[in-house]
Design a protein around this nucleic acid. Structure first.
Lengths: 235, 235
DNA sequence: CTCACTTTGTGCATCGGTTCACAAAAGGAC
DNA sequence: GTCCTTTTGTGAACCGATGCACAAAGTGAG
């Protein structure tokens, strides 16, 4: 059978699965580097930190790429997942906001390695414009529209202050950008069809604090704190 | 009724709810600054970017803090959520790995503002040790255990290279730390009872790329790409 | 070829989370 | 007080994701 066409690939991959594919990909790359030719769902699952049934179900959404009794071909699976994630093409990314975080992102090796190319850095501060960071010239935010067009930017990373984020988002969306990774601590409102992913350092810490507190409470023998508004308790 | 004890607060707040509480808190703080005294679930939901039924169900897990026909008292709700999240105490955070990202985190204002205090910066590179960043002296990783004890660190942020992350995690866990925020692109294996949260820039971009590609596919009229391993297609 | 063994792919039960839709509660007008 | 309006809190239906458990499909030995 030479051309097995899209019989299995039902175009609708669950969001939860998509979020795990990069994890599998990373584990597989490690295995490829170590020269492994095939891997079982069990081993790959351990390497990716999930359970093997989930892994198999995830992969089954892409197609039937394993061999029963054997496992998965490492290189083949890398290719299939990469293709599914769209990493076989390269994506031009613009980073807006070249503060501490923007600089860190620009220098972050993980971007380049997997199909992503930082194609532009932009900032509003004249002090920063013109700086060379990670081999790129920082351009002025006024150039935003021109840069997006000229460099074919399709993904924008927002590392601006919270106050500027919505405004920049509006401008890039007007230019046709539909994928935004937002580091600014603000809820962006965007039209239908635009994908926003949000990374919020402060929220992550707050979630940890919640669990940490709960663990501490358990140590000291359950809820001893007042349940009331302080004033209400005292009166 | 002076002491209404934990009748509603069933100690088991859904994880999904916990993850949204910081969002509500941020929206509420904005409202408090603008002088709003009360807010309806509808308005707060819009500000936080969720739907109002979800918001009400989330808040109902904390207790019954609203007034029917009126809404929620802004200050009161801020206090209740803060307390639930454990933000009424302050948490000493250590950042391990003072590269670009570590620096960005150390300077990130959002930490200090909400109960978190960066209490230590550590790195293995002698070039970096001794630097002053965000008012702190960078200490050598050999001091890790001593610093954790001395400063009462209970949350550790890992901004190390992937290769060092597991090792540092093992050491801080041995010191009794049970809350870790991991920026290194690696799956940490930790014992039961330790909470890990992971922020992975590269994964976020890959998820965006997946959706971006799907949008592009739809434009050009569905799946036209070969489904096969390139060699297999040609032969 | 047959048998024993391995490992995938998936049907099914289950679970957690979301959303709807409405009764219950509160406030204000009169 | 009664009536009308507003808005909460929640029961119940729904939806997606997880995990179990096993049949199906493959390998390899003899």
């Amino acid at each position: 059978m030479i051309r097995r066409l899209s019989q299995a690939r039902d175009r609708g991959i669950p969001e939860a699965t998509v979020a795990r594919l990069p994890l599998y990909l990373r584990a597989l790359n490690g295995m490829a580097e170590r020269g492994l030719a095939t891997v079982s769902s069990e081993d790959l699952a351990v390497a990716a930190g999930v359970n093997s049934a989930k892994l198999r179900k995830d992969l089954s959404h892409l197609g039937s790429y394993g061999t029963r009794g054997v496992g998965y071909d490492v290189e083949y699976l890398i290719y299939q997942i990469s293709r599914e994630l769209g990493l076989t093409q390269d994506w031009a990314v613009a980073i807006v906001g070249v503060g501490n975080l923007g600089r860190a992102l620009a220098n972050y090796g993980g971007f380049v390695s997997r199909g992503f190319r930082v194609a532009a850095l932009l900032d509003a501060d004249p002090e920063v414009v013109g700086d060379h960071i990670a081999g790129l010239n920082v351009e002025h935010i006024d150039e935003l529209e021109a840069v997006i067009t000229r460099r074919g930017v399709s993904i924008v990373v927002l590392a601006t202050p919270a106050t500027a984020a919505q405004q920049v988002a509006d401008r890039v969306i007007a230019m046709g950008v539909t994928s935004i990774l937002n580091f600014a601590p603000v809820v962006l409102s965007v039209p239908e069809g635009v994908d926003i992913r949000k990374v919020d350092l402060s929220i992550e810490l707050q979630i940890l604090a919640f669990h940490e507190q709960r663990k501490a409470d358990r140590m000291t023998g359950g809820p001893v704190m007042a349940e009331e508004w302080p004033e209400a308790v005292d009166l």
